[in-house]
Structure formats: structure tokens, C-alpha cells
């Protein structure tokens, strides 16, 4: 990795209070404060958000694309987790 660029941080923006934080990109910074200020300058120049999270890329744990089949397999055969699996009498209407 680079000697003088600082580590990479991932940036998450919350558009409005109450909404989820969404990943919007990454940046270089040497420490937390700098990462937060750089994120503000880089990703919210046009009021794109009201709150920010920054986290070092190296701290993120991600699933690996090769294993997604077996990794997510346990949920494949559990249709009974969905509301449409159940029969409700017409007389009851919407439930």
C-alpha cells in the first residue's frame, strides 16, 4: 500500500434522519477526524446527507462471491417465512 496517501475508508451517508445509512464510496485519510471531514467535502457538497459514517476499509468483513450459493442456501427452502405462504379465508379480507 501507499506510503503517503493514508489508508482507505468507506463512507456511508444518511440522506434524511430516520433513513438507513447507505454506502456511497471511499476515500483516503490518515485518521478518523480527517476521514469524516474529507467525507463531508467529497460526498455531501450538495446536501446529500445529514449524517455520515466512516470506517476503515480493512475493518470491513465481506462475504466472498465464490461462496454466495452455499452461504445463502439456508434461506432458499423456507417459503413459510413469507406471509403469502399462509391461506387466510376471503371473509377476513386484508391481514
Amino acid at each position: 500500500m501507499s506510503d503517503n496517501q493514508g489508508p482507505i475508508w468507506e463512507v456511508f451517508v444518511q440522506k434524511k434522519a430516520g433513513q438507513p445509512f447507505v454506502h456511497c464510496g471511499s476515500l483516503h485519510a490518515f485518521d478518523k477526524e480527517m476521514a469524516l471531514q474529507n467525507a463531508r467535502d467529497l460526498y455531501t457538497r450538495r446536501q446529500e446527507g445529514c449524517a455520515l459514517w466512516v470506517v476503515k476499509s480493512s475493518e470491513i468483513v465481506a462475504s466472498s462471491p465464490e461462496d454466495i450459493g452455499p452461504f445463502f442456501e439456508p434461506s432458499n427452502d423456507k417459503v413459510y417465512r413469507h406471509p403469502t405462504f399462509y391461506q387466510i379465508p376471503d371473509a377476513i379480507g386484508h391481514m
Binding site: M1, S2, Q5, I8, R45
Partner: peptide, 24 residues
């Protein structure tokens, strides 16, 4: 001009996801 700088930064980090450092 500040936007152009920002665009450069978005793109460098996009390139870095392919395994080449920004310094390079």
C-alpha cells in the same frame, strides 16, 4: 473546479478497488 477535484477522487478510489494504489 472543486467538483472536478472530487470527481478525480471518486475515480481514483474506483480504480483502487482493482488492486492498484493511488500513489502508483
Amino acid at each position: 473546479v472543486q467538483d472536478e477535484g472530487g470527481h478525480g477522487l471518486y475515480l481514483y478510489t474506483a480504480a483502487e478497488t482493482l488492486g492498484t494504489g493511488r500513489d502508483e
